[in-house]
Protein backbone atom coordinates (compact mmCIF):
# COMPACT_ATOMS: atom_id res chain seq x y z
CA UNK A 1 0.00 0.00 0.00
CA UNK A 2 2.90 2.31 0.75
CA UNK A 3 4.25 4.39 -2.07
CA UNK A 4 7.03 2.34 -3.58
CA UNK A 5 9.50 3.60 -6.05
CA UNK A 6 11.17 0.62 -7.62
CA UNK A 7 14.90 0.39 -7.21
CA UNK A 8 17.28 1.10 -10.03
CA UNK A 9 17.81 -2.61 -10.53
CA UNK A 10 14.72 -4.44 -11.66
CA UNK A 11 14.39 -6.83 -8.75
CA UNK A 12 15.11 -4.60 -5.79
CA UNK A 13 12.90 -2.48 -3.65
CA UNK A 14 13.39 0.10 -0.95
CA UNK A 15 12.59 -1.16 2.54
CA UNK A 16 12.91 0.17 6.02
CA UNK A 17 13.25 -1.74 9.27
CA UNK A 18 12.14 0.11 12.38
CA UNK A 19 13.06 -1.80 15.51
CA UNK A 20 13.07 -1.74 19.28
CA UNK A 21 15.99 -3.31 21.10
CA UNK A 22 15.60 -4.63 24.63
CA UNK A 23 16.45 -2.05 27.27
CA UNK A 24 18.32 -4.82 29.14
CA UNK A 25 21.14 -4.50 26.58
CA UNK A 26 23.90 -2.30 27.99
CA UNK A 27 24.92 0.90 26.22
CA UNK A 28 28.31 -0.62 25.34
CA UNK A 29 26.74 -3.68 23.70
CA UNK A 30 24.15 -1.69 21.78
CA UNK A 31 26.49 -0.62 18.91
CA UNK A 32 27.43 -4.30 18.45
CA UNK A 33 23.78 -5.30 17.94
CA UNK A 34 23.31 -2.31 15.64
CA UNK A 35 26.41 -3.30 13.65
CA UNK A 36 25.23 -6.91 13.45
CA UNK A 37 21.91 -5.82 11.94
CA UNK A 38 23.69 -3.76 9.28
CA UNK A 39 26.05 -6.65 8.55
CA UNK A 40 23.06 -8.99 8.24
CA UNK A 41 21.40 -6.68 5.70
CA UNK A 42 24.59 -6.37 3.69
CA UNK A 43 25.16 -10.15 3.80
CA UNK A 44 21.70 -10.66 2.30
CA UNK A 45 22.62 -8.46 -0.63
CA UNK A 46 21.08 -5.29 0.72
CA UNK A 47 22.43 -1.82 0.15
CA UNK A 48 22.03 0.52 3.11
CA UNK A 49 20.67 3.93 2.15
CA UNK A 50 20.30 5.65 5.51
CA UNK A 51 19.97 4.72 9.14
CA UNK A 52 19.83 6.05 12.64
CA UNK A 53 21.61 4.83 15.77
CA UNK A 54 19.25 3.27 18.31
CA UNK A 55 18.30 5.72 21.03
CA UNK A 56 16.58 5.10 24.31
CA UNK A 57 12.94 6.13 24.17
CA UNK A 58 10.14 5.83 26.70
CA UNK A 59 7.52 3.51 25.20
CA UNK A 60 3.98 4.80 24.88
CA UNK A 61 2.73 1.64 26.59
CA UNK A 62 4.26 -1.31 28.39
CA UNK A 63 5.37 -4.11 26.08
CA UNK A 64 6.00 -7.70 27.07
CA UNK A 65 8.36 -10.27 25.71
CA UNK A 66 8.71 -13.86 26.85
CA UNK A 67 12.39 -14.67 27.31
CA UNK A 68 13.24 -18.19 28.56
CA UNK A 69 9.66 -18.77 29.72
CA UNK A 70 9.64 -15.57 31.78
CA UNK A 71 7.40 -12.75 30.75
CA UNK A 72 9.38 -9.52 30.90
CA UNK A 73 7.83 -6.08 30.88
CA UNK A 74 9.50 -3.14 29.16
CA UNK A 75 8.73 0.57 29.55
CA UNK A 76 11.79 1.81 27.68
CA UNK A 77 13.66 0.50 24.65
CA UNK A 78 16.27 1.50 22.10
CA UNK A 79 14.53 2.68 18.94
CA UNK A 80 16.41 2.76 15.64
CA UNK A 81 15.77 2.29 11.95
CA UNK A 82 17.63 1.33 8.77
CA UNK A 83 16.57 2.10 5.22
CA UNK A 84 17.95 -0.21 2.57
CA UNK A 85 17.49 -1.59 -0.91
CA UNK A 86 16.95 -5.33 -1.27
CA UNK A 87 15.23 -7.90 -3.43
CA UNK A 88 11.79 -8.92 -2.14
CA UNK A 89 12.62 -12.60 -1.60
CA UNK A 90 15.66 -11.75 0.50
CA UNK A 91 13.51 -9.60 2.77
CA UNK A 92 11.60 -12.73 3.81
CA UNK A 93 14.90 -14.27 4.88
CA UNK A 94 15.75 -11.11 6.79
CA UNK A 95 12.41 -11.30 8.58
CA UNK A 96 13.00 -14.92 9.55
CA UNK A 97 16.43 -14.08 10.95
CA UNK A 98 15.16 -11.07 12.88
CA UNK A 99 12.32 -13.20 14.29
CA UNK A 100 14.95 -15.44 15.89
CA UNK A 101 17.11 -12.59 17.20
CA UNK A 102 16.81 -12.37 20.98
CA UNK A 103 17.91 -8.73 21.18
CA UNK A 104 14.84 -7.39 19.40
CA UNK A 105 11.74 -6.43 21.33
CA UNK A 106 9.84 -5.66 18.14
CA UNK A 107 10.56 -4.76 14.55
CA UNK A 108 8.59 -3.60 11.55
CA UNK A 109 9.59 -4.01 7.89
CA UNK A 110 8.01 -1.45 5.59
CA UNK A 111 8.15 -0.63 1.92
CA UNK A 112 9.20 2.98 1.55
CA UNK A 113 10.79 5.47 -0.85
CA UNK A 114 14.44 6.35 -1.37
CA UNK A 115 14.01 10.01 -0.49
CA UNK A 116 14.25 11.22 3.07
CA UNK A 117 10.75 10.97 4.48
CA UNK A 118 11.25 12.73 7.80
CA UNK A 119 9.72 16.17 7.62
CA UNK A 120 11.23 17.42 10.87
CA UNK A 121 13.53 19.80 9.00
CA UNK A 122 10.55 21.59 7.56
CA UNK A 123 9.43 22.32 11.06
CA UNK A 124 12.74 23.97 11.79
CA UNK A 125 12.16 26.11 8.71
CA UNK A 126 8.73 26.96 9.94
CA UNK A 127 10.10 27.93 13.33
CA UNK A 128 12.86 29.96 11.72
CA UNK A 129 10.23 31.72 9.62
CA UNK A 130 8.37 32.53 12.77
CA UNK A 131 11.58 33.74 14.30
CA UNK A 132 12.32 35.91 11.27
CA UNK A 133 8.84 37.39 11.44
CA UNK A 134 9.32 38.09 15.13
CA UNK A 135 12.77 39.54 14.45
CA UNK A 136 11.22 41.66 11.71
CA UNK A 137 8.77 42.97 14.23
CA UNK A 138 11.66 43.76 16.53
CA UNK A 139 13.39 45.43 13.61
CA UNK A 140 10.29 47.50 12.98
CA UNK A 141 10.29 48.54 16.57
CA UNK A 142 13.94 49.51 16.28
CA UNK A 143 13.23 51.59 13.20
CA UNK A 144 10.29 53.18 14.94
CA UNK A 145 12.36 54.08 17.98
CA UNK A 146 14.96 56.32 16.25
CA UNK A 147 12.18 58.30 14.60
CA UNK A 148 10.70 58.81 18.01
CA UNK A 149 14.09 59.93 19.33
CA UNK A 150 14.49 62.44 16.51
CA UNK A 151 11.06 63.79 17.15
CA UNK A 152 11.85 64.02 20.83
CA UNK A 153 15.15 65.76 20.03
CA UNK A 154 13.33 68.22 17.82
CA UNK A 155 10.80 68.83 20.54
CA UNK A 156 13.56 69.33 23.09
CA UNK A 157 15.38 71.71 20.71
CA UNK A 158 12.16 73.60 20.25
CA UNK A 159 11.68 73.72 24.01
CA UNK A 160 15.26 74.91 24.54
CA UNK A 161 14.89 77.54 21.80
CA UNK A 162 11.69 78.73 23.39
Amino acid sequence: MENNIEGVETNTRIYEVGYLLLSSISLEDMPVVYGNLKDLIVSLGGEIISDEMPKTIPLAYTMTKVIQNIRNKFDTAYFGWVKFEMSPDKVLELKKKLDLDVNFLRFLILKTIRENTIAAKRFVHKDSRRKTTSSKKEGENETVLPIDKEEIDKEIDAMVAA
Binding site: E2, Y19, L20, A60, Y61
Partner: peptide
Protein backbone atom coordinates in the same frame (compact mmCIF):
# COMPACT_ATOMS: atom_id res chain seq x y z
CA UNK B 1 -5.45 6.75 4.61
CA UNK B 2 -1.67 6.97 4.72
CA UNK B 3 -1.89 9.06 7.90
CA UNK B 4 -3.96 6.33 9.56
CA UNK B 5 -1.43 3.71 8.45
CA UNK B 6 1.48 5.79 9.78
CA UNK B 7 -0.26 6.23 13.15
CA UNK B 8 -0.88 2.49 13.38
CA UNK B 9 2.74 1.68 12.56
CA UNK B 10 3.91 4.21 15.16
CA UNK B 11 1.59 2.63 17.73
CA UNK B 12 3.03 -0.82 17.06
CA UNK B 13 6.55 0.46 17.73
CA UNK B 14 5.51 2.22 20.93
CA UNK B 15 6.00 5.74 19.56
CA UNK B 16 2.32 6.58 20.00
CA UNK B 17 -0.19 5.17 22.47
CA UNK B 18 -3.11 2.95 21.51
CA UNK B 19 -5.09 4.54 24.33
Amino acid sequence: RSLALAVKNARFLGLLPFV
